[in-house]
């Protein structure tokens, strides 16, 4: 089996350019608001660092911007809550499973967390049973977590329910953590409002939606599209019906807009990822938006 984390890293460092990665690191640092008063050392300023942290005297001496680093009072826990239901084994826009995108998102954020000195844990819900792996700060552990996501998300897995995962997170993650939900492309459900708001108050909450395959355009191959749950086919003849395609496109656009609006109105940092190339820029945009606007 090919290791998953190196692939994530290569996408972070090679496919995305160096500057983006630095930006990502800086923006990630801004997630954890708490810092101690014990000065640790100075380091180069990275975009996304708080301007208040800049040591102006040191900056004046060296000629390049330096920021003060403080010893963290405590290590942050990052909880990856990932939907491993059958829906995540279905195709994303490129035709590959959505699971691969979820692994990419979780790997990228997990790796940034490790670089920042945080510990990464994983909560999944498979076959009606919640599995909670406690946070640890180790790359090998992160690799194990990614692998279990890969193994759990199968075409014969039970259907996932990200909202049920949320209600577990309320009970199962006691200390304040950074909670990153990687969820299926679900409809916003009003009855989850309460859980979502509590979750947001107790933790730093990031919600990443993995987008579904466009059923009209398909993945460009002539493969027959079947529903992942009940196996009902999407006849290819009907996908060529222009009227149907137009209506579907409009409905999809409306749905995605409603999805964004839903999370935004509840103050949850949300982004939507549909292809592997989108992952790094979308995450960066999400973190920037979060620092500047608070969601």
């Amino acid at each position: 089996m090919v290791a998953l984390l190196p692939r994530v890293k290569s996408r972070l460092f090679i496919h995305a350019n160096r500057r983006t990665t630095n930006l990502l690191e800086g923006e990630y640092a801004a997630i954890s608001a708490g810092r101690s008063l014990d000065f640790d050392d100075l380091r180069e300023y990275l975009p996304g660092d708080d301007v208040d942290d800049i040591d102006w005297k040191a900056t004046a001496r060296t000629g390049s911007p330096l920021v003060k680093r403080y010893k963290q009072t405590r290590r942050h826990d990052v909880v990856l809550a990932i939907d491993t239901g059958r829906g995540m084994a279905a195709a994303a826009e490129g035709g590959g499973p959505k699971r691969d995108l979820a692994i990419l998102v979780a790997g990228a954020l997990g790796y940034l967390s490790l670089r920042h000195g945080d510990a990464v844990g994983l909560v999944t819900r498979a076959g009606g049973r919640v599995r909670n792996r406690p946070p640890r700060a180790s790359e090998a552990y992160l690799e194990t977590l990614l692998r279990s996501v890969q193994n759990e998300t199968r075409l014969d897995a039970a259907p996932g329910d990200p909202y049920e995962l949320c209600s577990y997170l309320l009970r199962g993650v006691p200390s304040r953590s950074i909670v990153i939900v990687v969820a299926d492309d679900v409809e916003p459900a009003p009855d989850i409002d309460e859980a979502l708001r509590s979750l947001r108050e107790r933790h730093e909450l990031l919600w990443i939606t993995i987008g579904d395959l466009d059923l009209v355009r398909g993945d460009g191959s002539d493969r027959e599209i079947l529903d992942v749950l009940d196996g009902s086919p999407v006849p290819s003849v009907l996908r060529e019906d222009p009227r149907l395609a137009r209506v579907y496109r409009r409905r999809t656009d409306d749905r995605i807009a409603a999805q964004h609006a839903y999370f935004r109105s509840r103050g949850v940092s949300h982004c939507r990822v549909a292809t592997a190339d989108e992952v790094v820029p979308e995450l960066l945009r999400l973190l920037q938006r979060r620092r500047r606007n608070g969601y």
Binding site: R86, G87, M88, A89, A90, A91, G95, K98, L155, D184, D185, D212, L213, L215, V216, G218, D219, S221, R223, E224, I225, L226, D227, V228, L229, S232, V234, P235, V237, L238, D241, R243, L244, V247, Y248, R251, T252, R255
Partner: peptide
Amino acid sequence: ERGILSAAHTERLLALPEYRGAYRRA
């Protein structure tokens, strides 16, 4: 299995009234 592409939430297309119309026409 090779010729099959599994997709989630196909009801977003299959439950459209326009889909039923197109299906009937086809």
